[in-house]
Amino acid sequence: MHRALVTFLLLALASAAFAEDGARSEFTDSRDGRVYRTVEIGGQVWFAENLAYAAKGSFCYGGAAKGCSERLYPKDVAEKACPAGWRLPSNDDFQKLYGYAGKTGVRSVGNALKAKSGWDRNGNGFDDFGFDAKPAGYCESRKKCEYRDCFLSMWSSTENISWSLYCVDEDFNKGTYSRTAALSVRCIKE
């Protein structure tokens, strides 16, 4: 009973400490009229969903043409895909997000950022900050795509570095991909 009370109090304190964050808003991309949810986390303003702009060279998982709400971008396309006033986050931006999300000390960073639904293999998170990270898979080529419901990897502006969440892992991991791999994009406000 004592341990449950301590956990409850830690969660309550973490929620209160981060109450000033989580400010949610919306942004309309003038290029296609799509409305994106945004969220402030640790002084940074992020898209609260993956970019879905049909930039030349981007594509949908497995080449799907209809109902594509999750687009994947090779690195060269990702570098120019965010709308005006937004940019591809740097490795430092992701590290700041990682450090901030890890300050609660109660949950793993991955579970704090993952959406509450949509992840295979019981990999759903708690979405403590409104980042709402959902799986989108990745593609080595237009025909070789994997892990649609179990993996999210987002490009950073730093050469070949991405940050990833996996359905069977509770962390938020930094990794590298070739520039031709197609990954998701999360934009951050300039």
Rank of each mutant, 00 (worst) to 15 (best):
L51G: 00
L51Y: 07
A52P: 01
A54M: 07
A54N: 08
A55E: 15
K56V: 09
G57C: 05
G57E: 00
F59L: 02
C60G: 13
C60A: 10
C60S: 10
Y61T: 00
A64G: 14
A64L: 07
K66E: 13
G67F: 12
G67S: 14
C68E: 07
C68R: 02
C68M: 05
C68S: 04
S69R: 15
S69V: 13
E70P: 00
E70M: 05
E70L: 07
R71W: 11
R71M: 10
L72G: 05
Y73N: 03
Y73C: 04
K75S: 04
K75Q: 13
K75Y: 12
K80T: 14
A81V: 05
A81G: 08
C82L: 06
A84H: 08
A84E: 15
A84N: 15
G85I: 13
W86V: 05
R87N: 05
R87E: 07
L88E: 00
L88C: 03
P89L: 04
N91Q: 14
N91R: 15
D93G: 13
D93E: 15
F94A: 12
F94K: 00
K96P: 05
K96R: 15
Y98M: 10
Y98H: 11
Y98F: 15
Y98G: 00
Y98C: 01
G99Y: 08
G99R: 14
A101Q: 01
A101G: 03
G102L: 13
G102D: 11
G102C: 10
G102E: 15
G102S: 12
T104V: 01
T104E: 11
T104G: 13
V106M: 10
V106A: 11
R107A: 14
R107Q: 07
R107P: 00
S108P: 01
V109M: 09
V109R: 09
V109Q: 04
V109H: 01
G110E: 05
G110L: 01
N111P: 06
A112Q: 06
A112R: 08
L113F: 09
K114R: 10
K114A: 09
K114H: 08
K116W: 08
K116C: 10
S117Y: 08
S117D: 13
G118V: 11
G118Q: 03
W119M: 04
W119Q: 04
W119F: 01
R121I: 08
R121E: 13
N124S: 10
N124Y: 05
N124T: 04
F126E: 09
F126Q: 03
D127A: 03
G130H: 06
G130K: 06
F131M: 13
F131T: 01
A133Y: 03
K134L: 07
P135S: 06
A136W: 00
A136M: 12
G137M: 01
G137P: 00
